[in-house]
Design a protein around this nucleic acid. Structure first.
Lengths: 371, 371
DNA sequence: TTCCAATTTGAAAGCGCTTTCAAAATATTT
DNA sequence: AAATATTTTGAAAGCGCTTTCAAATTGGAA
């Protein structure tokens, strides 16, 4: 059973390809008068082949318009040169920025990124992880560390390096240990969500605020959201304060949710004087809604965001927020994975810095003399 | 030269895998007591195998935690189940939205998407296309039809289906024929940039405007930008008007560029009464800058955007703009490619609709009595 | 029950590359 | 110049799967 593939013999006895079939390495070898092994070497370690042959091969490659067959390469070399990435969403510059940086860096290393968006759905995420694993990615990048044991089992079964971004393994009381099996220490590239949230809260506290509210992203399966909430709570607790149940709104990550939550909060019995948003879209929504309700920020209520996306600085009032290093995360995650793939035993990079960016949406609570 | 791979024989003579090596189809076959062919069939066309065997195989797969090897599959079946996509950028919800929809739809069909961002750079785009082709993608999605002949040659050489989005093949005088070799009719999923631009212009014209300016995205290598500019020009020409040279600013696609251009325009000798932005970030910048300059929109100048990204409706004044169907494009492109991959000879889908969304940033020109 | 058509199965040949091993060619030393 | 060390090359064996072809099994029809 030869020739499932239509090789047709030309008049000179040379094998040509039937329409639509591209040249193979063997064709190149024949065309250049060398062995397939040599062509392969030209592709993978050019200096291990004599210049004159190398030239012949290069020419043959050009003439035949040869493009190596990725799958065959992957099969033989046991590496696909692909890195998988699953993001919770891609329709915002938040993860998009990280992806862009990640992809750019990974491309530098000759790798290609296979991407998927899980729409913040753990089940979908797991399916995507499985898919990527099947696709044969050499490494994996995931957002957040919280996911099913099953998902991690799959990855470990494949034995490929992976990195988890947007979280850090900070040695705080709030670290992940309490929520993850002890043997699970993932490599992280990210920042300390807990500390960053505690930070803004402290700042607000220092302005004199005592009545807080938080609009938090959906917490189930989202450790970033949970840590931020816990960070806020911890900072409040240090001053013997707390978040009243009706002052905590947990929602999907949309601007519209921010609007609703804000309205709800400000129309309540005891409106807060400061609103901490666990994700920036909430803050945008809050600001928009404030304008609509005729409330002024920060005179009537202070609002802080989280992430410092591009819009924050342009809003009026400009938004006080926490700058998170998404581009850096993308790049660093890429570099980390690349090093691991080159066999280097790189250490977990240290957590990245976040920065409290104080702008115009925060001030002393109403009624205070400015302290 | 056997066993480059460490197969170790267990005591029962059964082949197990050394650490880190995952089970293969052959392992599954042995474990289930069937031939490899049967396992393969279970994976690819389950109903061609008897239920009892199928069950055994399914169990074996589970027990061994078997994950098919994508590259091997791709090599043997000559299809990789991957689709490549190159976007000009990913750090905005514009292309991100399209990508998200594209990826979701493609995943439905059991495909996976390999993505790359070209940073609006043709050379980088071409490199990415080459890379994706090497990766063995079964199909390709690109933004815009304008790119080097070389790039198209590469794709055609591989003989895979591809689709070009964000543009249409509208049968207008402005169609692509003049800029592309006649034999190049690409499958398009998109809308008519020219007509959409002409549309807003007509609207502005109908409000009484006669002094126009345009802030256009960089045109080189970007047919969307070019078509939009031409659309505006054509509409103006129909009224014997034109865009003064100093009333046309061509820039990268950033908010900051919009700010600068706006300031420049409004501080000029003869400021326009209407500014058409070829991309929405420009309009945002314009609105922000107007506020800073103490100009009011639309009283002093009307501003229109292009794309209707999420922010447009929340701005004050809310932005009049053209809604472009990016989610639909993503989905439709995916479906088109999927059909082609299933061998169906689908026709080019018809151009999608755009919609002029009139909000508050446009009005009669200053000094007019409201017509 | 016997025989033939229809359905399931397995053996084996690749898919296009990489990589080992040994042979051939070249460079270096004595 | 001969002998040895080094570098280049090629032959061939897979990588893990799919798919053809023929053999084995099954289900009906006779």
């Amino acid at each position: 059973m030869s020739g499932r593939r239509d090789k047709v013999r030309g008049q000179e006895g040379q094998v040509r390809r039937a329409e639509g079939l591209s040249a193979t390495l063997e064709d190149v070898a024949r065309h250049a008068g060398v062995s397939p092994a040599t062509v392969s070497r030209c592709l993978n370690s050019p200096n291990s082949v004599r210049p004159n042959k190398r030239e012949k091969v290069t020419r043959a490659i050009q003439e035949l318009n040869y493009v190596p067959h990725g799958a065959a390469r992957a099969l033989a070399s046991r590496k696909s040169r692909m890195i998988g990435a699953v993001f919770p969403s891609l329709d915002t510059d938040l993860f998009g920025g990280a992806l862009e940086a990640f992809q750019g860096e990974v491309a530098q290393g000759g790798y290609t990124v296979v991407v998927a968006s899980s729409a913040y759905d753990p089940a979908q995420e797991q399916r995507h992880i499985r898919n990527l694993l099947e696709s044969g990615v050499d490494a994996l990048m995931l957002v957040g560390a919280e996911r099913s044991e099953e998902a991690y089992r799959l990855i470990r079964a494949k034995g490929i390096p992976y990195v988890v971004i947007w979280v850090s393994q900070a040695p705080y009381p709030h670290n992940l240990a309490e929520n993850l099996a002890p043997d699970l220490r993932h490599d992280c590239v990210g920042f300390d969500n807990w500390a960053a949230a505690a930070d803004v809260t402290d700042y607000l506290l220092s302005l004199g605020h005592r009545h807080f509210a938080m609009i938090s992203g959906t917490i189930a399966g989202n450790d970033r959201a949970r840590l931020r909430l816990e960070g806020v709570r911890a900072a409040l607790k240090a001053k013997s304060l707390d978040l009243a149940p009706d002052h905590l709104h947990e929602r999907p990550f949309q601007v519209e949710d921010g609007r609703q939550a804000f309205r709800c909060l400000m129309q309540g019995e005891t409106p807060p004087t400061a609103i901490i948003c666990g994700a920036e879209p909430f803050a945008y929504g809050a600001l928009f809604e404030a304008k609509e309700m005729g409330l002024s920020v920060p005179e009537d209520v202070s609002v802080v965001g989280f992430d410092d996306m591009w819009l924050a600085a342009h809003l009026s009032p400009a938004l006080t927020t926490v700058r998170t290093p998404r581009t850096k995360m993308g790049r660093q995650a890429a570099r980390f994975l690349l090093s691991r793939l080159m066999g280097q035993a790189v250490a977990d990079p240290p957590p990245l810095e976040t920065k409290l960016v104080i702008r115009k949406s925060t001030g002393p609570p109403p009624g205070s003399s400015g302290l």
